[in-house]
Design a protein around this nucleic acid. Structure first.
Length: 426
RNA sequence: GUGGCCUUAGCUCAAUCGGUAGAGCAUCGGAUUGUGGCUCCGAAGGUUGCGGGUUCAAGCCCCGUAGGCCACCCCA
């Protein structure tokens, strides 16, 4: 094995079993998107770095230290590219670029695909990871906020995760957040002596972060801290109440968390995250989203409200594995064509091709092993039937063997496709 | 980006005091010539992540490096 040639740090191969698990989640996501009226689209895997710098915020971690920058190999356009760290910025760029403000609003969009962050890898944290992203652009809410939260929750349920908790908050807007931030900073300044070194630095860079600090020394100081939800302006307060009312009306359970902050600058008002209940560790955020009413304008479009979420498919797969559900077996052929004459690969391939013509997933044993070995291999890959070619071919018959029960009977080759199709259905 | 732990066959792991690398599973072959999951026999599979150093001798000790993981940071 050549250790010098391996998957780059923070990336991994999705081997067939895991790829199948991803495919199932993707099917669930796309089916839900269709059911809720979100149309699937694609954006490039890379964009101008400026899109993310401007949209996400130049001083956020995602841009400052995690942006996966790409140097053009030929420099006639000295563009600075970056692999997309998330989908929202690209979707909004496309909304503006293609004049989607002329479509009936809101425009409901969805996509799945890989995202890239140049982060230090850990379990559940990769440099290339997959998201299902859903965006509704052009609706100020609050009803659509609730619709999206419910959609996200339904995805986890349909995917088979039962212990997912919804955490909800409002982080205000440019009308009320600055005043709140000033209050918050004043509060921490008053308790400066009790703040650990790290938290003092964060006070300068990102005071909202102190609220969800994990440092035990912070618990007491945080208890007395002003809550954003107590300092929302009238419009934001009304909006937040509307979101909760709609969620309540749908019977969607959630936990209010005034400390919930989102890491990207563009978020306003509604913020939510999905967590695995009872799971320890740092990589348990399964997904999150929020409202970004200023983003489209920031990127050069007309003032347009928007809201969306992104769910981490890798983490859902991990969570499904952890909950012990296991992965359903997939890809086993209905039948394997084996033969008494090991050398007769022509006959086996010909019979298999005929069955494939009939739409049946069938493998021909193309080895030259003796019959017993061929049957053994068929059983071990989970095939339902073995089609055995032998002397009966002289009269146009093959042996059809049920590999579970072990029963076996001669069947005219011409009847085989129809017979197998009937058996598969039952 | 910071600190720590780990790395031996495809996988999961052994290897005493530093003494020249093994097992199970998986793979392939065989058990007298048309019938499977079991059993038995056998084969193949390793520059012990990589590169240096110490030593008569290194999987084991030291340094570096890469990767994984854990805690931060942050997020999905």
């Amino acid at each position: 094995m050549p250790p010098s040639l391996r998957a780059p740090r923070g990336t991994r191969d999705l081997l067939p079993d895991e790829r199948a698990a991803f495919a199932r989640l993707e099917r669930t996501a796309l089916e839900l998107a269709a059911r809720y009226g979100y149309r699937v689209m694609e954006t490039p895997l890379f964009e101008q770095a400026a899109l993310f710098e401007r949209g996400i915020g130049a001083v956020t971690d995602v841009v400052e230290k995690e942006l996966f920058r790409v140097l053009p190999s030929r420099g006639e356009e000295r563009e600075a590219w970056a692999l997309r760290p998330e989908a929202t910025a690209g979707v909004c760029r496309a909304y503006i670029e293609h004049g989607m403000q002329t479509l009936p609003q809101p425009v409901r969009l969805s996509l799945t695909g890989p995202m890239f962050r140049y982060d230090r890898p850990q379990a559940g944290r990769y440099r290339q990871f997959w998201q299902w992203d859903v965006e509704a652009i052009g609706d100020a809410g609050p009803a659509i906020d609730a619709e999206l939260v419910e959609l996200g929750a339904r995805f986890y349920r349909d995917a088979g995760l039962t212990d997912v908790e919804i955490v909800l908050n409002s982080i205000g807007d440019p009308a009320c957040r600055p005043a709140y931030l000033a209050r918050l900073v004043a509060h921490y300044r008053a308790h400066l002596v009790r703040l650990p070194e790290l938290e003092r630095r964060r006070l300068e860079t990102n005071p909202l972060r102190l609220l969800d600090s994990r440092d035990p020394a912070m618990t007491e100081v945080n208890e007395g801290a002003p809550r954003i939800t107590d300092h929302l302006c009238a419009a934001c307060g009304e909006h937040f109440a509307g979101v909760r009312a709609h969620l309540d009306a749908m019977g969607v359970a959630y936990r209010l968390e005034p400390g919930l902050v989102r890491g990207l600058d563009y978020y306003t008002r509604t913020a939510f995250e999905f967590y695995r209940r009872g799971a320890e560790g740092q990589q348990q955020a399964l997904g999150g989203g929020g409202r970004y009413d200023g983003l489209v304008e920031l990127l050069g479009g007309k003032p347009t409200p928007g809201i969306g979420f992104a769910l981490g498919l890798d983490r859902v797969v991990l969570a499904l594995d952890a909950t012990g559900g296991g992965r359903p077996a997939e890809g086993a052929p209905v039948a394997v064509v084996v033969g008494a004459d090991p050398a007769d690969t022509v006959g086996r391939l010909r019979v298999a091709t005929g069955l494939r013509d009939a739409g049946l997933p069938v493998r021909a044993d193309l080895s030259v092993r003796k019959l017993g070995r061929q049957l053994e291999a068929a059983v071990r890959e989970g095939a339902q039937f073995a089609v055995i070619l032998g002397d009966e071919l002289a009269t146009g018959d093959v042996q059809l063997r049920d590999l579970d029960g072990g029963s076996q009977k001669p069947v005219p080759l011409v009847d085989l496709p129809a017979l197998l199709r009937r058996k598969v259905r039952s």
